[in-house]
Amino acid sequence: LLPSFEIGAWTEDDVYCWVQQLVRKGDSSAEMSVYASLFKENNITGKRLLLLEEEDLKDMGIVSKGHIIHFKSAIEKLTHDYIN
């Protein structure tokens, strides 16, 4: 489970856990499981996660359009939940 809904306070480890949970919950393929490490390697914290754009995801090595859409949708939901 994630430490809190205060996404802005999430550490790199918290984001890593979130990506792992996202991959487990989704209908995503096994190749998506490597993405948790990509987020950690790129020092993505909660604040940075909320700022990620499609180009950032591509720069991190996420090239599948479907996977990018999956992440963007999940990040938008997080942003919405965080604001409300």
Rank of each mutant, 00 (worst) to 15 (best):
D14F: 10
D56T: 01
Y82V: 10
G8P: 13
V15E: 05
I7A: 05
F71E: 02
F5P: 14
Q21I: 04
D59F: 07
D13L: 03
H70K: 08
N42H: 15
D59N: 12
A74K: 02
A74D: 03
G26N: 06
V23I: 12
E76V: 04
N84D: 13
I62G: 02
I44V: 08
A74Q: 09
L2T: 15
Y82P: 10
K65P: 14
H80M: 10
F39R: 01
T11C: 00
S28E: 13
T11H: 03
P3N: 15
H67F: 11
S4W: 04
C17I: 10
S64E: 14
V34I: 07
S28W: 13
Q20W: 08
L22I: 14
W10F: 04
A30D: 10
D81E: 12
D14Y: 00
Y35K: 08
D13N: 05
T11P: 00
V15R: 00
W10T: 02
M60C: 03
E31K: 07
E54P: 04
D14S: 02
D14C: 01
S4Q: 11
Y16F: 10
F39P: 02
D27W: 09
D59K: 15
L1T: 12
Y35G: 01
N43I: 04
D13K: 05
M32H: 05
R48H: 04
K65Y: 09
K77H: 09
H70L: 10
E53C: 14
D27F: 09
S37C: 06
F5I: 13
E54W: 05
R24W: 15
K77N: 08
E6N: 11
Q21F: 09
D56R: 01
Y16E: 10
I75N: 01
P3V: 05
H67E: 06
L22H: 02
K72R: 09
F5H: 15
R48M: 05
V23T: 12
K25P: 12
H67C: 07
A9D: 14
L52T: 01
E41I: 08
L1P: 09
T79D: 06
S29R: 09
F71V: 04
H70V: 07
E54Q: 07
C17L: 12
F71D: 02
R24Y: 12
S29C: 10
K58G: 02
I75D: 01
E31W: 07
T45M: 00
Q20N: 10
K58Q: 15
L22Q: 11
L1A: 12
Y16G: 05
L78T: 07
Y35C: 06
G46V: 01
R48E: 13
N84F: 08
K25I: 08
I68C: 08
D59A: 12
V15F: 05
T79Q: 15
V19D: 07
Y82S: 12
Y35P: 01
G66V: 11
G26I: 15
D59M: 12
K77D: 08
F39S: 01
L38A: 14
M32E: 07
G61S: 02
I83H: 15
H67S: 07
R24Q: 13
M60W: 07
L2P: 09
E41T: 07
W10V: 01
E31D: 14
Q20I: 01
E54S: 04
T45Y: 08
F71T: 03
E76F: 05
L2S: 14
S37T: 10
V23S: 11
I62D: 01
F39N: 01
R48F: 00
S64G: 07
K72Y: 07
E53S: 10
V63F: 03
S29Q: 11
S29M: 09
N43M: 08
E54H: 06
K65W: 07
P3T: 14
G46R: 04
I7V: 14
L78R: 01
